[in-house]
Amino acid sequence: MSDAAMVDPVVSLHNVTKTYIRGGTEVSVIRDLSFVIPAGTFLAIMGPSGSGKSTLLNVMAGIDRPTSGSVVVAGTRLEQLSEGEMARWRARHIGYVFQTYNLIPVLTAAENVELPLALTHLTRRERADHVKTALRLVGLADRMDHYPRQLSGGQEQRVGVARAIVSDPTMILADEPTGNLDRESADDILTLLARLNRELGKTIVMVTHDPRAAERAQMIRHLEKGLLEMPP
């Protein structure tokens, strides 16, 4: 990303390092990482297993905290937030798409999508409108009352995407969103993410190890042993 592209960044990482202690040994997952992601970007972060992709995504989502360095997302320095403040911040700014969908099995598609709205002050009618809109966007308006077990993997992931966008977050973070899907379903999800980026201007950061998935993004960065490969 050039300096020109750094206008109005949504994500700004400065010298971020993340280490874990495993079996008494210190393991560096992310090493002194600094980069920015401009608003409206669809970025794919690639890398092999264990390269630190998911950890990087979790750090940007405020799910994990860096060992050192500074993380600013949507204008907020995350290291200054308490757990409670972080949760509130995440509810407002982050939509998260999981590899394994992670829908609540006892809730219908509509109820799953409605879940993040329980944290807002929207009325019941407003919540219902938001849910309908989100499910229509992902093409599942006719499956609102279906439980996750009644949906295919691709449909479950589309519900996951609807849940991520229903509260209109600043940024969507997707952790291997096509990892559990067949090629056709994966293409549907990637098309959907690209549409959300293109038509709604959503900033999307997607972690993947699949080059075909990464090709759908505007930008691709490779993470190798905790270091981000910057463009020449």
């Binding site: 409670g84 949760a87 509130r88 509810a91 998260y96 999981f98 993040p116 329980a118 944290l119």
Partner: peptide
């Protein structure tokens, strides 16, 4: 537990 983790990811508090 995993579902509770997902809910926390969505912004739910303890």
């Amino acid at each position: 537990t995993r579902e509770y983790g997902v809910m926390k990811t969505l912004g739910f508090q303890p």
